[in-house]
């Protein structure tokens, strides 16, 4: 990955997608020694409104810190899909939470989907880790960082009492997408 690789996480404010972006950037820059920039934009409302977090990964220093043309995008809600699932490059990928995004964005990119939030709730037992399920899924979809680098960054971020929960969330998201790619 010598050139820029751009990933956008979008959803509702409060879903932890900025955190997911931070963890991915940490995995790239601390665990893999690459350059990474994470940025976000959000409205004045703390929760509820559409929010996005962008991560750019490169082997060389990164100049423009925002996305130019996105290689991979995640949308967890219909509003975020409508607002942020654009500017995806030809042949890029879009991952959707299939329970919440019914009107799929159209474009020259591949769509992958599974019920991300429901997976967190039903298979992991806590809806709050939907962002970590999504992170595992995005890493599986993009190979932006290695599976191990991503997991290590997740575990470095969460309190000790929640290590197993987050590990399970990450691995579940990762495996679900690898199955979709088979």
């Amino acid at each position: 990955m010598s050139k820029r690789y751009e990933i956008r996480f979008s959803g509702a404010g409060g879903q932890g997608l900025i955190t997911a972006g931070i963890i991915l950037a940490e995995a790239a820059c601390i665990n893999e020694g690459k350059h990474a920039v994470q940025s976000q934009s959000y409205g004045p409302e703390a929760r509820g409104g559409a929010s996005k977090s962008e991560v750019i990964i490169s082997d060389t220093p990164i100049d423009y810190p925002k996305a130019t043309i996105v290689d991979a995008c995640l949308a967890m809600t219909q509003e975020s899909a409508d607002k942020y699932a654009n500017g995806i490059k030809a042949g890029g990928v879009l991952l959707l939470d299939s329970d919440f995004v019914k009107n799929e964005p159209k474009g020259d990119f591949k769509i992958y989907k599974f019920p991300i939030t429901r997976t967190a709730k039903d298979e992991i037992g806590r809806e709050i880790v939907a962002n970590v399920v999504a992170l595992g899924a995005m890493i599986a979809l993009t190979d932006a960082v290695s599976r191990d680098a991503g997991l290590k960054a997740v575990l470095a971020k969460v309190p000790e009492a929640f290590l197993d929960l987050n590990k399970k969330a990450y691995n579940t998201g990762y495996d679900k997408v690898k199955d979709l790619l088979k």
Partner: peptide, 9 residues
């Protein structure tokens, strides 16, 4: 704000 809020290495 962009430089203030973004995270990088």
């Amino acid at each position: 704000e962009i430089v203030g809020h973004m995270r990088e290495r």
